[in-house]
Design a binder for these strands. Structure first.
Length: 422
RNA sequence: GGAGAGGUGGCCGAGUGGUCGAAGGCACCCGCUUGCUAAGCGGUUUCUCGUCGAAAGACGGGACGGGAGUUCGAAUCUCCCCCUCUCCGCCA
């Protein structure tokens, strides 16, 4: 949630942000609602103040054994007025609350302004796609040939766009998850969490998936629970409604979870293979920091995510997303993309986003400053990494001319082998 | 799923209709004291919203798991929901 004080103090800042994001939201009517909301609050407060004074007087008189009928009558009529005004106020409140939930975060000043991926900015890494000296098979062909993915039978179990790993494929998937977790816990200073993946509505509002992405999530029929779309949701909600101590910060969490996405409306593109699926595995990083240290920690997180592709020796580049590609709740996002020479495409394997205080306001995550006072923390998260596309990148980049897949050095201890072959 | 007990401030914990925002303790911060560590003494410190203010702040509303209700007045009474603990049932 944005800071609603901005609505009164600096609405231009919000207008600019909305424009940068190419969004057409009627801000004036939200400001109008806020004005009405505050007027209603003031009115109710004055009535209550009067009633409280009367009640106190009544209490005093009663203790003296008197029965102040007239005062009680007055108080009763005040109470009735209050009830009416409160009902009115509640309606305004709900309308305002709903509207404000749809205001996205304000992009960081360094974020390039644009309408989509074409405006994303190259930060570092490879400027050109590497060209192998032989014809690399796309992952769906090589994996079928080596019998490590069963793309034909997966739909039988769950439907299209689900992955069935098999044999060395399943092992490779598990190896990736273990490698990422080990790297982040032993070298990068994250605490491992293994959270539940069914999350209630409040959690999804807290991190900002709701209300916007309602149709993109799987929901349980009989309970108000959603299958988590990313471990960001459980990890960021661990400290929902808490006041942390400054000395506890930064908090660094890493978790492996499966992630579930309906991907509604995304059909028609990228249909082959396993680049876009309904269930995938991901190791996710989440940090809570003070505002002061937020961006330093954010850069560290980017480096932590980048360390994975470096260790796997995959061709990659880091992109800074433009306002047209930036998600709703994020102030700034870097993507790490790896190149898949079989598909001849750059694939996003990690998204590293800083939310500043946006999620903390929604989820009410604060910390106590040693000098006194409380403030909202900064939250941020990044994939480290999502496996299916990393899997693709390995299978395609480590393919050999004779149709085997070599194993990246750092994964050999997990795979107990140097290559996957028939 | 059934029965019982309970959910109070950053934490622990008293409080069953009216000066209770809430005793006491811990923690924190400030000062003093004791030649270190530890401790002792005194004092301070809830959060949130609205109005006014450049600010410091002032005034007022609200908050005792969440929501609705009874009442002039609710931490305290009633109802619904959530969570925790104990017992029973079921079960990977």
């Amino acid at each position: 949630m944005i800071d609603i004080k901005l609505l009164r103090d600096d609405p231009q800042k919000i207008r600019t942000a909305l424009k940068k994001r190419n969004l057409d939201i009627d801000l004036e009517s939200i400001i109008e609602l806020d004005t009405r909301r505050r007027a209603s609050i003031t009115e109710i407060q004055e009535l209550k103040s009067k009633r409280n004074a009367l009640s106190e007087e009544i209490g005093r008189l009663k203790q003296q054994g008197k029965e102040p009928k007239k005062l009680m009558e007055q108080a009763r009529s005040l109470a009735e007025q209050i009830k009416l005004k409160e009902d009115e106020g509640r309606e305004i409140d709900v309308a305002f609350g709903d509207a404000v939930q749809w205001l996205p975060n304000i992009p960081h000043e360094s974020v390039p302004v644009g309408t989509g991926v074409e405006s994303n900015k190259f930060i570092r890494g490879l400027t050109h796609a590497p060209e192998p000296d032989f014809e690399v098979l796309p992952h769906w062909d090589i994996c079928e040939a080596l019998d490590i993915l069963d793309l034909k039978r997966a739909p039988k179990i769950s439907g299209s766009r689900f992955i069935l790993y098999k044999g060395k494929g399943a092992l490779l998937e598990r190896a990736l998850i273990n490698f990422f977790l080990d790297l982040h816990t032993t070298k990068n200073g994250y605490t491992e969490i293994f959270p539940p993946v069914l999350n209630p509505t409040e959690c999804l509002y807290g991190t900002g998936q709701l209300p916007k992405l309602e149709s993109d999530m799987y929901r349980c029929r009989d309970d108000a629970l959603y299958l988590t779309p990313t471990a960001e949701v459980p990890l960021t909600n661990i400290h929902r409604d808490e006041v942390l101590l400054e000395k506890q910060l930064p908090i660094n969490y890493v978790a492996y979870t499966p992630c579930f996405r309906r991907e509604a409306g995304s059909y028609g593109k990228e249909v082959r293979g396993i680049t876009r699926v309904h269930q995938f595995n991901k190791v996710e990083l989440v940090k809570y920091t003070t505002p002061e240290k937020g961006y330093a920690e954010f850069e560290k997180m980017l480096a932590d995510a980048e360390a994975t592709v470096k260790a796997l020796q995959l061709p990659y580049r880091v992109m800074l997303l433009s306002t047209g590609d930036l998600t709703f709740a994020s102030a700034i996002t870097y993507d790490i993309e790896v190149y898949a020479p079989g598909m001849k495409e750059w694939l996003e394997v990690s998204s590293i986003s800083c939310y500043e205080q946006y999620q903390a306001r929604r989820a009410n995550i604060r910390y106590r400053r040693p000098t006194g006072g409380v403030d909202f923390v900064y939250t941020m998260n990044g994939s480290g990494l999502a496996t299916p596309r990393t899997f693709i990148a390995i299978v395609e980049n480590y393919q050999t001319k004779d149709g085997r897949i070599a194993i990246p050095e750092v994964l050999r201890e997990y795979m107990h082998a140097d290559s996957i072959d028939k």
